[in-house]
């Protein structure tokens, strides 16, 4: 297991290098530089600005300098659009917000998904089973940029329970977290139900019941661990989708997170900020996947990495 983790960690820089390279060159070949919007800038000033950001150097020099700064100092450079701010500062500001959102959404998704799935599997073919699974299909199909506005419409406009937008109090975080978590809650519920149904039919569960264990103990102690396996393997990609989905959710609810910054920077051609954001997302995704793989191996002894 340790060897496996080590090997995966060794490969990490390679993927990230590809990511940095692609984003760096893509952003640089884009027509229209970061300062092309400033009209009537005298050529001397323009040259000064470009010198300040090293845009006057050849492309490979810029690339090398960027790589060196990132690797040695973790320095992602200055932001082209937000004057007097570095990319690191912007990311440090936005990332905690995005993490909060993702964390709350994950809690919502797992709590609701697992409990709905377990109950549905215990009461197979009951009204709860059919009802929750229909809702799950709905939740999986309707995109979150539809769910979010509709939640806003209902809970913030008509009933005024929550605020329309913002990110100050806990109240503000409910709707975004539900919006972001709903599709995952739905997937998790379906996976849990399917996984539990499969496990419950197996011999060791019959043994546990034959021993005279209470049904609660059978489910919680014996069935749940195996039944949740498919959920764990979904969590890796699920969490990464949550990152991507947060782009939209942050936009709907005007949350000052990293997703907003990414969209803004992409639309503004703020090269360094784009590269920095994508890089941070890349690291998060790769690490998440690694963690999930390790957890999966721990939960399911049949899986051996070598």
């Amino acid at each position: 297991m340790l060897r496996y983790i080590l090997r995966r960690l060794l490969g990490l820089p390679v993927v990230l290098l590809i990511l940095v390279t692609i984003t760096f060159f893509l952003a640089r070949v884009a027509p229209g530089g970061p300062f092309s919007a400033d009209k009537n800038v005298p050529p001397e000033i323009k040259a000064n600005i470009e010198a300040k950001y090293h845009l006057d150097k050849p492309l490979h020099v810029q690339y090398g300098r960027y790589l060196r700064d990132v690797v040695t100092r973790g320095d992602l450079g200055p932001s082209f659009k937000h004057k007097d701010q570095t990319v690191n500062e912007i990311i440090e500001r936005g990332l905690p917000v995005s993490f909060q959102l993702g964390f709350l959404a994950a809690i919502f998704a797992v709590t609701f998904g697992v409990s709905a799935g377990v109950i549905a599997s215990i009461r197979q073919n009951s009204w709860f089973d059919y009802g929750s699974m229909s809702v799950a299909v709905l939740g999986m199909t309707i995109p979150n940029f539809v769910v979010g506005p509709i939640l806003v419409l209902l809970f913030a406009r008509y009933w005024k329970v929550f605020n329309v937008a913002g990110w100050e109090e806990l109240k503000d975080m409910v709707l975004p977290a539900i919006t972001l978590g709903l599709p995952f809650a739905a997937r998790i519920a379906r996976l849990t139900r399917a996984g539990m149904l499969e496990i419950v039919g197996q011999d060791f569960i019959r043994t546990a019941r034959a021993k005279g264990l209470a049904e609660r103990v059978v489910i919680v102690r014996h069935a749940l661990k195996g039944g949740l396996l498919p959920v764990v393997s979904f969590l890796g990609p699920g969490l990464s989708y949550m990152m991507v989905g947060s782009l939209v959710v942050e936009r709907i609810f005007r949350i000052p997170g990293l997703g907003q910054e990414f969209i803004e920077s992409a639309l503004n051609r703020d090269y360094t900020l784009v590269n920095g954001t994508v890089l941070v997302y890349g690291v998060i995704l790769v690490v998440m996947n690694l963690i999930v793989d390790v957890v999966y191996g721990y939960l399911d002894p049949r899986i051996r990495y070598d």
Binding site: L19, M243, V244, L285
Partner: peptide, 19 residues
């Protein structure tokens, strides 16, 4: 390798860069 990239970000980037 392409799978590991955060693809939606790359798509956004492509749209911004190439129009």
């Amino acid at each position: 390798i392409i799978y590991t990239l955060p693809y939606m970000f790359v798509v956004i980037l492509l749209m911004v860069v190439f129009g």
